[in-house]
Design a protein around this nucleic acid. Structure first.
Lengths: 163, 163
DNA sequence: CGTGAAACATTAGCGGC
DNA sequence: GCCGCTAATGTTTCACG
């Protein structure tokens, strides 16, 4: 988690790869005015230092039939003893469950009244209803759930601001 | 936006590319028990149909100095006439501004009391404070702002559930 | 940092199931 | 229709100047 020194060329490379992670090294080298080998060395360094976490394909939720994006605020049971295992808290149980639910694409512990914010992709309200009833509310650690829904998404990028 | 037919092999290819978007066609072909050419034909078809929206590198916010993730609920002025242009609503103005703010990585129109939910990456509270004062609250269409902050992120994936 | 050569990957055309 | 072979072209990668 140490800070990595990035010069202007590194930042340009990152900006390019955030837009298109499949560009050939040659193409990137050209755009940053470098020959292929030093450009590749920089990219490897960025990968090994963890600045670049990985490369992925982004899919279209609509085309996969995932027509509904929900944000779910969850509050957990605060008494820790109910799990039967010393050292296993309600938070631990809940986080493990979240990892296993494919509909949940993000889960953050939050400030404010609710404990967690979940980002959930489902096909429709029927699917969402099943998810809340059978998974979320069925979970022993969950005491309260408040949902809102995206009517339309105007911006949705994986590109982080590079200072 | 028409539905695209996906068979079991297509779905396996999508699952693989959601995890690692830089695998070679040969490697993918091996994993799905196909030879390179039909595998490539399927991938091209998925790209051209828009099921695959693109390929990107994912960066680590911490390593870029983006230590604070905020969720900002925004309420807009409802009277449309104040812009001076017929046909240009407060919503239009706000959405255009959102596109130009690099700190905002997602913006959804939402059900519930607030109109928009923004996902915002900033370096720290000072940066966030400047963003809210100088950009958000300074915008003529914004009438109210409510923020919460991620204490910790337990899940954060771009991989959508494939039915 | 750049050059060059070997290893590897992509892609189009064609024949077969 | 969808698969797999082959062969030409383009790309990555590494030792070395």
């Amino acid at each position: 988690m140490a800070e990595i020194e990035l010069d202007a060329v590194d930042r340009r490379i990152l900006a390019i790869l955030q837009e298109n992670g499949r560009l050939s090294n040659q193409e990137i080298a050209e755009r940053v005015n470098l020959s292929p080998s030093p450009c590749l060395r920089r990219i490897r360094r960025l990968e090994e230092s963890g600045v670049i976490r990985g490369y992925v394909a982004l899919l279209d939720p609509q085309k996969l039939g995932l027509g509904l994006l929900a944000f779910v605020n969850v509050r957990l049971e605060k008494r820790g003893g109910a799990t039967g295992h010393a050292g296993t808290t309600h938070a631990d149980l809940f986080r493990a469950a979240v990892q296993a639910w494919p509909e949940v694409v993000a889960c953050h512990a939050m400030t404010g009244e609710m404990d967690y914010l979940l980002r959930v992709f489902v096909t429709d309200m029927a699917h969402f209803s099943r998810f809340v009833q059978d998974q979320l509310l069925h979970h022993p650690s969950v005491v309260d759930v408040k949902s809102s829904f995206a009517l339309e998404s105007f911006k949705e990028t994986t590109a982080l601001p590079i200072r």
